[in-house]
Computed example of a mutant assay.
Amino acid sequence: MYLKTLQLRQFRNYKEQQIEFTAPKTILVGNNAQGKSNLLEAVELLATLRSHRHGRDRDLIREGEDTAQISASLKRQTGMSSLSLTLRRNGRRTVTLNSENLRRQMDFLGVLNAVQFSSLDLELVRGLPEVRRHWLDTLLIQLEPIYAHILQQYNQVLRQRNAFLKQNLEIRPTASVQSELAVWDAQLANAGTRVIRRRERAIQRLAPIATAWHANISGSTEILQVKYAPNVPLEENQPEQVQQAFLAKIQQRAIAELRQGTTLVGPHRDEVELTINNTPARQYGSQGQQRTLVLALKLAELQLIEEVVGESPLLLLDDVLAELDLSRQNQLLDTIQDRFQTLITTTHLGSFDSQWLNSSQILYVQSGEISSKTFINF
C-alpha cells in the first residue's frame, strides 16, 4: 500500500496542511516540538483510530477550534481509497471512506495499515503491563478489525460490573446482589473469552517472528521469548474451556472483589512476558539490549501484518535513530529499503547515507508548516 496524500486541518499544531508523498521514503526534518511527531500521529489515527500518546480527542484539536480533520488518499492493490477522520471536542468522531459516512467505526479499520515505532516504545520493556496490552491490542486491531468491537464490548461490561461492585462495597452480599453479580460474571466471561483467545493467537504467530529477528540483530548471542500470560488460566484455547476457567477464577476472587469494589479477574490484568536468555527483559542488560528487543518486536509487527493483510504496511519512525547505535540503525535501514513506505522524523540528516538521501523525499517542518525547502531560520 502507498499513502499518496495527507491533509491536516486544525490538528494539533497544524492549521491547514496538504502533503503529497512522492517517494517510498519520506524524511521529516525539524527541531523538537515543531510538529513532526504530530504528522505521524495523524497517520497512526487513520490506521488504528488510536494514538500511542493516549491523548483525548480534545487534546488533538488545535487550540481555539472545535473540530479537527485528517484526510488521506491511499493506493492499494485493490485500487484507490480516500479516508477521513473528524474529531470533535465533545469526543464524537465521524469516519468517512470513499466519501461515505460510516455508521460503524470498525468498517474504517483495516483500510490503512501502519506500524509506529517511537522512543516511547522502550516502555514496552520497562513499562507497566498495560503498556504491553495496549501494544498487543493495537496490533490485533490491524490484524482483525473486528477486535476493536470485541475489546470495546469487554471494556463496557467491565465498567458496568465495576460500578455494580462499588455500589455494593462492604455490604454483606444478599441473595439478590449475588444473583445480579452472577449475570455480570457471565457477561464478563463471555466478552473476556473473546479477547483472551485472540490475544493468545496473535502472540502465537508473532513470537517466532520476533525471536528470529532478535537472533538476527543480536548475532544469535541472545534468545528472545515472547509469551502471553493471561490473568485467566489458559490450558486450551477453546471457548468453552476458557469461559469455564474464567468463571471459576471469578468465584475464587468473589469476596475480595466485593471488599475492594473492583474486578480482579479478566484480560484487563493480562501480561505479555518478554524474556532474554530466560531472564525478564526489564531486568536484563543494557539499554542497547532493550532497544534490540523493541526493534525485533517492531520488525515482527511489520512482517506479521504483511503476511496477514497481503500488503506491506506503512512504517512510521519517530526519532528512533537517535535511540539506536550505528549497527542497529543500519539493521533497521537495511531492512526497510523500499519494502515499506516509510515516514521518518529526525532533527538532522547525519544518520542517513547518500543512497538513502538520494532515494528519499525530504520535507522540513517548522511550527506546524511543512516545506520541501529548508526554512531560513531553521
Score class of each variant (00 low, 15 high):
102 L>V: 11
201 R>P: 09
152 Q>I: 09
126 R>Y: 07
216 N>L: 06
94 T>K: 14
197 R>Y: 12
122 L>H: 01
124 L>I: 07
104 R>L: 12
182 A>G: 14
160 Q>I: 13
173 P>W: 00
109 L>R: 00
161 R>G: 01
144 E>D: 13
105 Q>C: 06
169 L>I: 05
142 Q>K: 02
204 Q>F: 06
127 G>S: 06
116 Q>D: 02
195 V>K: 09
178 Q>M: 11
194 R>M: 13
173 P>M: 03
140 L>T: 01
191 A>D: 00
107 D>C: 10
101 N>Y: 01
94 T>V: 11
170 E>I: 07
110 G>K: 05
155 N>V: 07
176 S>F: 08
186 A>L: 15
133 R>F: 13
162 N>M: 10
140 L>W: 00
104 R>S: 06
160 Q>M: 13
177 V>S: 03
139 L>V: 02
145 P>M: 12
156 Q>P: 08
189 A>D: 08
99 S>Q: 14
143 L>H: 01
135 W>M: 06
160 Q>T: 13
153 Q>A: 14
116 Q>V: 02
194 R>K: 14
140 L>Q: 02
96 T>H: 02
195 V>R: 04
180 E>H: 12
220 S>K: 14
166 K>L: 14
190 N>V: 01
157 V>M: 11
173 P>Q: 05
193 T>E: 03
125 V>F: 02
154 Y>A: 03
107 D>I: 09
217 I>R: 07
218 S>V: 08
107 D>N: 07
123 E>H: 10
176 S>I: 08
143 L>D: 00
154 Y>Q: 10
222 E>V: 01
120 L>C: 08
92 R>A: 09
121 D>R: 12
156 Q>R: 14
207 A>H: 06
159 R>Q: 14
112 L>V: 06
205 R>V: 03
184 W>P: 13
174 T>R: 11
100 E>I: 05
212 A>T: 14
99 S>H: 14
105 Q>K: 10
159 R>L: 15
95 V>K: 02
110 G>P: 06
176 S>V: 15
102 L>Y: 11
98 N>L: 09
124 L>A: 08
132 R>E: 10
119 S>C: 04
185 D>M: 06
143 L>Q: 00
176 S>P: 03
217 I>P: 08
153 Q>R: 15
196 I>E: 11
149 H>P: 05
198 R>S: 12
144 E>L: 12
134 H>S: 12
197 R>C: 10
179 S>P: 04
126 R>P: 00
209 I>W: 09
122 L>P: 03
213 W>S: 13
173 P>C: 09
208 P>R: 04
177 V>I: 10
160 Q>R: 15
208 P>E: 04
190 N>E: 07
99 S>I: 06
165 L>D: 03
221 T>L: 12
134 H>C: 01
109 L>N: 03
184 W>M: 13
201 R>I: 09
205 R>W: 03
135 W>L: 02
156 Q>W: 15
95 V>T: 10
116 Q>N: 05
129 P>R: 00
156 Q>E: 15
112 L>K: 09
179 S>G: 08
139 L>W: 00
137 D>L: 01
203 I>F: 02
178 Q>L: 15
165 L>R: 01
146 I>V: 06
194 R>V: 04
211 T>V: 02
185 D>P: 10
140 L>F: 04
97 L>H: 08
132 R>G: 00
126 R>W: 10
143 L>F: 08
106 M>A: 13
113 N>C: 11
127 G>M: 01
134 H>T: 06
146 I>N: 13
115 V>Y: 05
178 Q>V: 08
211 T>W: 03
